[in-house]
Write a protein that binds this DNA or RNA. Structure first.
Lengths: 336, 336
DNA sequence: TTGTAAGCGTTATCAC
DNA sequence: GTGATAACGCTTACAA
């Protein structure tokens, strides 16, 4: 049976309120008394019951982390949220929604149930507006990462994907390439179209004309990358490098290049999109555009905590820049 | 301002206690009254404050998941714990300890603080016994997964690694191989020694003599695998297949085999240990021994929940069998 | 500076 | 079957 405030109070010969003040570093406790109390607290390793604290203070010091799929979101972001949150005295509860509206709804109820002080929603499609509204109305705090809430004013963190593509393509252009192919997923995907835009933007910046025959749209699978490469080497205007809009596609592409008897990066420099353990592990290690996960996480944590504390962050929508992680696959080496 | 029990009671014209009984499906509420109450509850989407519930019932319906590093533990295990827990009305709070004793201690305090009803500790070195004891004493429930608590009687889930190796090696032996090399990490690691034991066990089962020159001990890195392979092809008794005790080593090995101009599995079948996105993504896809993550997770969840509910699981220590995920890299194809 | 007492929103134990 | 009422453990006016 754990100790309670009352026990400590009795031991110290003071009132509960005094102990409470002492523990919470509130003013109005005598030097002496406080010392005595803290002594006893330490000695018995007393921990206030946070449930009771929460009930009295109307806060739980818990933050919900809503992800569609634990395996598809970078852990770095979670780790960094957790780290900032911990530092501020918050714990994170992890909510795997599987992109299932029912589960999402159930989890958002946590906010309503006073289980958490706020929630960070990472990626995926947005839940029912009705629920979001409910959560917001009961002064639940919400922060969105990499997903959009149309019409609603919710603090949101985004990454500029077109800038990422531009970064990658520029890196190749700067090394003198002129016929860079882009291998991408379905172009009706908003993210993919953004990446294509960035690709064009880079070309423009370097005054390289855009060629439609260097755009290879695939289904996004490894096999898709195979076909894209075959088509690329089959055509007349052979590309001299590849920008690929996902890591899976990039892995497939590198693989087919190698099986084709070519070398990466000697024959074809390749840049992928999205960092994962794989991209750094395969050979050659892949240069990729990566989301600034740690940054994203710490921003999200800071946002939600300041919201919880009643301050509205200066920027409702903040767009972070991706970074280019330069590894082996993109270093142009003229072999001739 | 969310509704409370009192509000509902007033609306229904009954006492709070009656509403409480109705909501919790407790006996002693008239058919009619209950219907009326539930009607109002639904209409206003009333959610009882779980903090208050927890305080009154002395339970939080929260489980802590303690991992040393979010990125190194299979998500599957977390997902499966979460899924079982959710089904039973529990939420999981995720605790990334970074194998840092301080953080570990801090997190175990959650148990003491009544923040969680119990904790599942996954992998890593065990925390301070003193803290564990504290947690246990205050009737905190603990379950260990893939780690051992010497001297203490804590329900534990383990995976039989020697059996996993045996499974893998047997799979190769069954296909007629006779000179299977094992590429392993440092043999002073308990896990590695277990895997070696399983390797020997399989040989014995198939009456193949054990050869010390087919054991390649490395530092566990990809480079380690390179050197191991070079040594292997350099020696006289060329192996006809490889069992590799980690996925990183396996990836390195496959890579060096391919750069050496050999084919996997045609020239050298390879089996790795530990499943990850990489192993299924690289080409050829890797046959691996995998921990039964989903199973491990659901067992752990069931254990902790039954502990929380006061039942001790039948087996204090339960050993689960790994599974062999057969993919391309291990299928022997006689090329001659 | 310290103590008293009234909450916080539930559940549980009594009476009726 | 239903309703007061006392917990649960803590915070916080308000008094003293």
């Amino acid at each position: 049976m754990p100790l309670t405030l009352k026990d400590i109070a009795r031991m110290a010969g003071v009132a509960e309120s005094t102990v409470s003040r002492a523990i919470n570093n509130k003013p109005g406790v005598g030097e002496e008394t406080k010392k005595k109390i803290m002594e006893i607290v330490r000695e018995h390793n007393f921990q206030p019951n946070q449930l009771a604290q929460g009930l009295a203070k109307k806060e739980t010091h818990m933050i919900a982390l809503m992800v569609t799929d634990l395996s598809s979101v970078g852990y770095e972001i979670i780790k960094s949220i957790e780290s900032v949150a911990n530092k501020e005295g918050y714990n994170c509860i992890i909510c795997n929604t599987d992109n299932n509206p029912e589960k999402k709804k159930a989890y958002l109820q946590l906010v309503l149930n006073n289980r958490v002080d706020g929630a960070i929603i990472i990626g995926g499609e947005l839940a029912d507006k009705s629920i979001l509204n409910l959560a917001l109305k009961k002064d639940g705090s919400l922060v969105l990462v990499n997903c959009l809430a149309e019409e609603m004013l919710i603090p949101t963190l985004l990454v500029d994907n077109s800038k990422g593509s531009c970064l990658a393509v520029s890196h190749l252009l700067e090394q003198g390439l002129e016929n860079i192919a882009i291998v991408m997923g379905p172009s009706d995907d908003f993210l993919e179209s953004e990446k294509l835009a960035g690709y064009k933007q880079a070309l423009e910046k370097y005054n390289i004309p855009f060629r439609n025959d260097l755009v290879f749209e695939t289904d996004g699978s490894q096999e898709g990358a195979y076909w894209a490469f075959l088509k690329a080497v089959d055509g007349e205007g052979l590309p001299d490098g590849f920008f690929v809009t996902s890591d899976i596609l990039a892995i497939g592409l590198v693989d087919v290049i190698k099986t084709g008897g070519y070398l990466v990066p000697e024959d074809f420099p390749v840049i992928g999109y999205g960092d994962s353990l794989i991209t750094s592990t395969i050979s050659p290690s892949l240069t990729v555009v990566a989301e600034p996960l740690t940054n994203l996480g710490s921003c999200a944590a800071e946002y939600i905590i300041s919201l919880i504390r009643g301050k509205c962050p200066e920027d409702i929508i903040k767009v972070l820049d991706p970074v280019l992680i330069k590894r082996e696959s993109s270093i142009v080496k003229k072999t001739k």
